[in-house]
Each structure stands twice: as structure tokens, then as C-alpha cells.
């Protein structure tokens, strides 16, 4: 699996993400600076977490207008995989590759903890290593992860099985208490129509080695390695 990790000023989980790709696939990621206009020849373009441009103006808004973004769009149009995590998810929605928006957490606070996610679609290129309905542990660390989309968009996402991850409790029940940010329908990660762009707030890249307290995040990278 050949991967590129995009680096915008203020991004700070690029090393974590590159490490996850390397640990799982054995191949080092290309680190791509935001002023580049071409991507290297890769299967997956990953946009990491952080605070691109300090989250000033609006999370992800400035990064979404970077020179590299056209190349990312072309990559997606060609069917290449795009993975946006946390700030990367926000950037991907700002680019318009995924619908909806990420608002301030309902608690109005940044929150870092481990949550449970239910894999609601295990047939995607990003989740095939998981079992359908599997409940996994996953860290989160964000202040603006409250997913919102209008009713029509939401109905399409749900109807087409594009809600891939949902916040839930240890038994897999989606409850308000198990939702760390107030996302609509407890949505933690969504897919585009074509199935090649995934955006998610949680950080599977921080739970891939037993030393980190678990390996539940590996499945996402293993899934990609199977198809890429």
C-alpha cells in the first residue's frame, strides 16, 4: 500500500498517521507539503489531524484552499482512496468531497478520551477487516467533531449505508451518553457515494500497538492494505 500523508501548517498528527501506515503495511508514507501541486504515485491520500492554520477562520477552511487540494480532488475522481481523520475530516468536508459539517462539540469543550465505535458498514474498502456491527475502542481528541448534515443528506447517508462508524457504548448501543460530541445520529465517520473517501473524527492511528492500550485501530489500515 502506497500512501501519502498531507502536511499543512498546524497539522500535528501526521507522524502518528504515517507510523500507522508503516506499522501495518511495512511501507513508509510520502509526506506531502501543502504547496505541492502534484501527488506522488500512491493508492491512499491521508489527511491527518491537528489544527491546520490554527483552526482560524473555521476548522479546515484555509487548508481546503491549498495548492495540493486540486491534486487530491483529481485523485478521488480517479477512484483513489482518500482518508480524512479529525482535522482531515473537517478539511475533506470543506473541500466538498464529503457532505455535512463538523460543529463545536455539544459540551463546548475539547475532549480527549477513548470511545467505542460501532462498525455499521463493514463492506467498505476502509472497514472490511472488521465484522459487521463490531464494537471497537478508539481514541478521540477534538473540540469540533459534532457532525451535522441536513435531513435530506442524512437520509441519503443512512439509506446508502454510508454511515460507517457510529459512537456507541460497550454493548454497541448508540446513546446520547456514549456520544462524546453531540453528532447527529451519533455519526463518527462517513463515506462518499463512490466509496473511496472516508472521513472520521476518531483516531484509529493511535490504537494500533498493544503498548498504546489496544490494537482496535489496526483494522482500518489492514482493510486498506487489502485493496491497495
Amino acid at each position: 500500500m502506497k500512501s501519502a500523508v498531507l502536511v499543512f501548517p498546524g497539522i500535528n498528527r501526521e507522524r502518528d498517521l504515517a507510523r500507522a501506515f508503516e506499522v501495518v503495511s511495512g511501507v513508509k508514507s510520502h509526506m506531502v507539503w501543502h504547496t505541492e501541486t502534484e501527488l506522488p504515485d500512491v493508492d491512499v491520500v491521508a489527511i491527518p489531524g491537528g489544527f491546520s492554520y490554527g483552526d482560524y477562520l473555521r476548522c479546515g477552511a484555509i487548508a481546503a484552499r491549498s495548492p495540493i487540494v486540486d491534486a487530491v480532488r483529481r485523485h478521488a475522481e480517479r477512484g483513489g482512496y482518500v482518508l480524512g481523520i479529525c482535522n482531515g475530516f473537517q478539511i475533506v468536508t470543506e473541500i466538498g468531497l464529503l457532505p455535512g459539517a463538523l460543529m463545536r462539540n455539544a459540551s463546548l469543550k475539547f475532549v480527549c478520551k477513548e470511545v467505542r465505535l460501532r462498525v455499521d458498514n463493514a463492506t467498505t474498502a476502509f472497514t472490511s477487516a472488521y465484522a459487521p456491527g463490531q464494537v471497537i475502542r478508539c481514541p478521540i481528541a477534538h473540540g469540533e467533531g459534532n457532525y451535522f448534515a441536513d435531513a435530506e443528506t442524512l437520509a441519503r447517508l443512512e439509506g446508502e449505508g454510508r454511515v460507517v462508524f457510529r459512537y456507541c457504548d460497550a454493548e454497541g448501543r448508540t446513546t446520547d451518553a456514549a456520544d462524546p460530541n453531540g453528532s447527529i445520529n451519533h455519526i463518527a465517520g462517513i463515506l462518499n457515494e463512490r466509496g473511496n473517501v472516508l472521513g472520521m473524527m476518531p483516531h484509529p492511528e493511535n490504537l494500533i500497538e498493544s503498548l498504546q492500550g489496544g490494537i482496535d485501530g489496526r483494522g482500518l489500515f489492514e482493510s486498506l492494505a487489502k485493496v491497495a
Binding site: D16, A141, E205, Q212
Partner: peptide, 16 residues
């Protein structure tokens, strides 16, 4: 307090 601090970034936190 500490849930408002990112204590997991860099992926090296063994004792939280």
C-alpha cells in the same frame, strides 16, 4: 481536567 488535554497524540502514551 485531563480529558480536555490531548494526552494521546504522538502515540507513545503508555501510562495515561
Amino acid at each position: 481536567v485531563w480529558e480536555q488535554y490531548d494526552h494521546l497524540i504522538q502515540g507513545n502514551t503508555v501510562q495515561r
